[in-house]
């Protein structure tokens, strides 16, 4: 009996949802005079406001979720992988389509949560749209989100990783608040360069090398998988101080405890720029 109750309850909810869907569709395609809004000629004001022609809603069920486990070859590449930003970060308020350009083609969807809330750095803006870095392969993958579907915040932080000097630097409001020797990827499994971001803050009891793991949006270019994961690069601690200053890891950046403490206070979505200097 309880199974039947569940099904009827679900059906009831579906009824209401369908009523909303039908009514909302009619609301959008018709203005108050009953004309088809999608065929209305666009005005200069529309173009200035970024009101692109109406497109059919993206079918989220058919789109791949842009998580750390995904590969999105159709994602436009980051054209300026060493550039800083003004610190703008966004949190999707719901599952959102990712577009290859404003009002363009949807190639993936962004879930509001993966390692907790999803926060992404903004690397470009147009009226009503934000371009964000993605946490999926390939490195440097980007996509456009509608600004109406995100919460905007600012991160005063910037993290820089210098592979040549094997150091990590944390900047706050433009000034350095510390620099530490770190372990970076070995020549066979190098840490990828370019800009990425803090994707999560995870207490993972399955490992013993760090009290906390800070996954980034980037992935190893030489390891498709590692430890059961998709080769996600991360910032984390390491129990042996002798590794700091070495190129010895499988791609992750191993940092001293003091640096890790500071990094745990850095908002998710904060830009992390890795260079060869």
């Amino acid at each position: 009996m309880s199974r039947i109750m569940t099904l009827i309850s679900k059906t009831l909810v579906l009824l209401v949802a369908m009523a909303l869907a039908v009514a909302t569709v009619l609301l959008v395609v018709s203005d108050s005079d009953g004309r088809d809004r999608s065929t209305r000629e666009r005005t200069p004001a529309d173009r200035q406001l970024g009101n692109e022609p109406a497109r059919a809603p993206a079918d989220l069920r058919r789109l791949v979720a842009a998580t750390t486990a995904a590969s999105l070859p159709a994602a436009p590449a980051d054209a300026t992988p060493q550039a800083t930003t003004d610190g703008l970060v966004v949190r999707p308020l719901r599952v959102l389509p990712l577009y290859d350009k404003p009002a363009g083609r949807a190639f993936a969807k962004m879930p509001p949560q993966q390692f907790g809330d999803t926060w992404l750095p903004v690397i470009g803006q147009r009226s009503g749209w934000v371009r964000v870095l993605l946490p999926s392969r390939p490195n440097g993958a980007t996509g456009w989100l509608r600004e109406s579907g995100v919460e905007l915040r600012t991160s005063p932080y910037l993290v820089r990783v210098h592979l040549g000097s094997r150091t990590l630097e944390i900047n706050y409001e433009g000034g350095s608040i510390g620099s530490w020797p770190v372990a970076v990827g070995s020549p066979d499994t190098p840490t990828p360069t370019g800009r990425t971001f803090l994707l999560g803050s995870v207490l993972d009891d399955a490992q013993s090398f760090s009290p906390i793991i800070l996954p980034l949006g980037s992935h190893s270019d030489t390891l498709d998988t590692y430890g059961g994961g998709p080769g996600t690069v991360a910032l984390h601690g390491w129990p042996e101080a002798s590794v700091f200053g070495s190129a010895i890891s499988h791609g992750c950046i191993r940092v001293p405890a003091d640096a890790l403490d500071r990094l745990t206070q850095v908002p998710l979505g904060t830009l992390v720029i890795v260079d060869n200097s």
């Binding site: 907790g116 915040r153 803050s201 090398f209 190893s220 590692y226 998710l268």
Partner: peptide
């Protein structure tokens, strides 16, 4: 006006297999 400061993250208990 600049959007407010983003919050410090709340660590999540879970699995995060990374490259180490």
């Amino acid at each position: 006006t600049e959007p407010p400061i983003a919050p410090a993250p709340t660590p999540q208990v879970g699995s995060a297999p990374v490259t180490g």
